[in-house]
């Protein structure tokens, strides 16, 4: 990975993950509600669609934290860029929690 690509990944990686999770959760929710997939409660009374919608941001959050850990170990960036990248990745992690907490709470297709 050349230096330019490394910087791009370090700076944009966290929020790119957030955007991916956002897109997949929104599209998955709409598709699930329209097709009726996963709406019947499964074991524990939880609908499979809700499990998927919760797992997606949880995975995204875990990957973002992993990215933050890698950044803190040092990604070969200039100090100013390294701080910026860490701030952004940390913010993306917080945004993921704040943005998707509702998928575990609200009614699915009302």
């Amino acid at each position: 990975m050349n230096a330019g690509t490394r910087i791009l990944v370090a700076i944009a990686g966290g929020f790119t993950l957030w955007a991916l999770v956002f897109t997949v959760v929104y599209a998955g929710h709409a598709t699930g509600c329209e097709t009726g997939w996963g709406l019947t409660p499964g074991p524990g009374g939880i609908a499979p669609l809700r499990i998927v919608l919760v797992l997606l941001p949880v995975t995204g959050f875990a990957l973002t934290l992993a990215g933050l850990w890698l950044l803190r170990r040092g990604a070969g960036l200039a100090p100013r860029l390294a701080t910026t990248a860490q701030l952004l990745t940390g913010a993306a992690a917080v945004a993921t929690v704040y943005n998707f907490a509702v998928v575990g709470i609200l009614p699915l297709c009302v």
Partner: peptide, 8 residues
Amino acid sequence: LPHLSLAL
């Protein structure tokens, strides 16, 4: 739109 989408 469903409330869940609106909340996102």
